[in-house]
Design a binder for these strands. Structure first.
Lengths: 90, 90, 90, 90
DNA sequence: TAGGGCTACTTCCATC
DNA sequence: GATGGAAGTAGCCCTA
């Protein structure tokens, strides 16, 4: 064996592990680069006179429609059944 | 019965529901008060010259049973040596 | 000096640190106990026939009024100004 | 001008705002896609027999510059010995 | 084992 | 420039 303590299957595992780690690290780098880009856009918008906080609010709103509909429908149902039950006490 | 659809069992349910809700709300208030207390202690410690981050690390360490901690460290070591090995083969 | 390496100020510091740590740990224990109580209430409610998810929705709703009002007013303002501007393009 | 209150500069602003918003939304979509990719890699690694938690720990370690890591460990050690000392005096 | 809820951390913004 | 507070995000756990 080439080195003092490793057989081929451990070598394979070690190599695989390293590959996984490095793939993740590359992806996280990309992700972080995109986060920076987003920051830049906010900064540019701010420099143009826009309010970042308000922009975030808008983006949040535009993002919701799907999730919001789900959640608010659920809440509505809850309210409705709660009301039905509460009306039973009158 | 006064109205067309509610009987005493719904009344009971609605009352029970409200009681459950209110018990939970009281507990959450307490919990949130304690969170505030914890923040206060960290602030006080910080004012005394201690490093909050390190304190958090210590508390985390003390929370985990020794055996768990040892095992996690062991796995980590194994992985780290595997990576060293793998990097050594390039 | 009593031991081989510590002076009284270090002793004080060490004692203070320990006290801070233990105060926090006690508070976290209380907090975690309350979390457990909350879980118990949910479990009890569930056993009584209520839907925990719906209960959570209700509690969320009842909790909001303050924060919601803030946030949704803010969003409303944003929307209003955005609309004012967008109308300028017609 | 067609309406009573909007001039070309508001039109420009509204258009700019929309452009900023859409740029950000596109970037956030990319970011979220990458997050999904990362999850996939962890899942694949796990299926291969690796422990995701340990992998995260490694990635965290590799991300911090050696100097930072050393310093944090040093502080932690100091605090830990302080605690040992303080507990020894009781 | 996948999903959702909870917790904790980090990052960002506003204030002094 | 620092500090505190708030928001968004990631990791963990527990249930179904």
């Amino acid at each position: 064996m080439a080195d003092g303590h490793s057989g081929s299957s451990e070598a394979v595992s070690a190599g695989q592990l390293l590959q996984f780690i490095e793939r993740i690290e590359r992806l996280e780098e990309e992700k972080s680069g995109i986060s920076d880009d987003i920051k830049d856009v906010y900064a540019e918008a701010k420099a143009t006179g826009f309010d970042a906080k308000a922009m975030r609010a808008i983006i949040r709103l535009r993002k919701k429609p799907r999730s919001v509909r789900d959640e608010e429908e659920a809440i509505l149902e809850v309210y409705l059944s709660a009301l039905e039950e509460a009306e039973g006490t009158r």
